[in-house]
Amino acid sequence: MALRSINLPGIGTKYELETEKKDVVAVFFLKNGNIQMYTLPHDSSDPSVAELTSAEARRLGTILTGAIMEADRESVEIAFSALSDLRISIHTYTIGKRMANKSLEELQIRARTGVTIIAVSRGEKNVINPPPSFVFHEGDTLVAIGETDQLKTFEREIMVD
């Protein structure tokens, strides 16, 4: 993977990336604030172009970093610049049959995995910081917070059907 950047006077800054398969992706940050993205397959000499506003480019960037996964199972990782070894993940899950009709107390989620459930979304309603007596229904979306390893344990021990 070769990345090069170059400043073109009067035009803007160019970033060009050659992938392992020799395809080329180039991004130009133009002086007028817009962004042009070129892709050139290794077996062609005709590039295709997309013009993006900076908001669109940011959105594309988030997708490419992998931060947004499937719509019903999103995950965000937070890192603080002052606390470089603290990495917190926030993840959403959809309740299946196995967890349905059980309360938070019954499931012992925090004690068994270290993960904390911070919110549950049911239809139009959101419950922030649900109490131990809260009972899950099938189809609820829950928001869990923890370290990546803890969330993995949660998926393995509790979510698995």
């Binding site: 073109l8 035009i11 160019k14 180039a26 130009f28 070129y38 050139l40 590039p47």
Partner: peptide, 9 residues
């Protein structure tokens, strides 16, 4: 011309 005709690459 370079920008409008998409020739920057």
């Amino acid at each position: 011309s370079l920008i409008e005709n998409h020739k920057l690459l």
